[in-house]
Design a protein around this nucleic acid. Sequence first.
DNA 1: GTCTATAACCGGATAGAC
DNA 2: GTCTATCCGGTTATAGAC
Lengths: 202, 202
Amino acid sequence: MVKEQNTEDRIVDAAKKVFINKGMDGARMQEIANEAGINKALLHYYFRTKNKLFEKVFSLVFGDVLHVIEQAVTKETDFEQFLENFIRQYIRLLKNKPFIPQFVIHELNRKPERIVAQIQSKNVIKEQMFSIIERAVEKKEIRPIQPVHLVTNILALCIFPFVAKPMVKGLALDDDEKKYKQYINERPDEVVAFVKQAVLLR
Amino acid sequence: MVKEQNTEDRIVDAAKKVFINKGMDGARMQEIANEAGINKALLHYYFRTKNKLFEKVFSLVFGDVLHVIEQAVTKETDFEQFLENFIRQYIRLLKNKPFIPQFVIHELNRKPERIVAQIQSKNVIKEQMFSIIERAVEKKEIRPIQPVHLVTNILALCIFPFVAKPMVKGLALDDDEKKYKQYINERPDEVVAFVKQAVLLR
DNA sequence: GTCTATAACCGGATAGAC
DNA sequence: GTCTATCCGGTTATAGAC
């Protein structure tokens, strides 16, 4: 977005790119330096260790994820509108940054304590989503379902096609990139329809 | 399962354990050797390089995954039975080996070409699943839906709670292991009900 | 086949000049 | 702030005795 960046930002951007694609263990400081157009020593000058640089990147990325979800959540309180908006917005985001979920999931599994350190805005999001669902159940707009399950179902349907891309593409779509693109384009309608059918009372 | 194992099998078992938990990049030959109760040199005697050992492990694990799915698929041809069996069997399996999907997904993303090398039984599974679904659509047992979407929806609903455990537990369940266990126990009924609602024509 | 010892290498981190 | 050169620990891989 920005043209002229200071060194620190260039490093962070480069680090994001490399860490997201290779993970903490697979990433190389040399590669990050190359990506940023500087040399290794300078990385250490700005962020003393690889680990510190990684933590910085992870908290930024995870913060973004939470922020986007929060945005999508706090817009609507009507259930059907919320469902539509959330699913479409979230999948659109994933189309632009398809490697983020795999990165976040992998690094959270590697070090699950991380989640605790990161949970500031968590409760806002959780309470908001849960209350939308609970209200919809009370109003008999949807069948009785526990909020945790509905939320994870929705996230699963949105995220899985991206994290499991090689499997979906290889096992079901003849390893054909065009078919995969097409499939991804169909997902928003498909997921919205699927969830609505599953929970809306008609 | 077996008590007395030869060295090669002990190595492979140890390697599975370590690679599945740490991934290719995070795993250490020393740790595998310790786990197998031998020394590093012997690893190289049996499998010349770390990479060769990893490839062996990956193809075994991925083969198992495909095999289990194949089993679940080829049992029933009636749609509703297939749905029930598949979901319940698959989640039961994941409860026993919760780290497999994250491992497979991560390593496939690291090297997507892998999938091509591994696709022997692929088509049997795919054709079988797809034809069960297509027949159900024709018979008006379920609403019209593309097989790819239904299959990925089902897999997503089964797998996601395991690969995203830290997120589900941390963001939605107060980071409480008991609540997570409880949540996982509810999944089979929840997923079966969700999918049936979503597709069955009543 | 299995071990100990060690070579060879790689990658994160530091020293020090500019 | 940025660079080149270098160190040093850890990890894969090999040599060679048993």
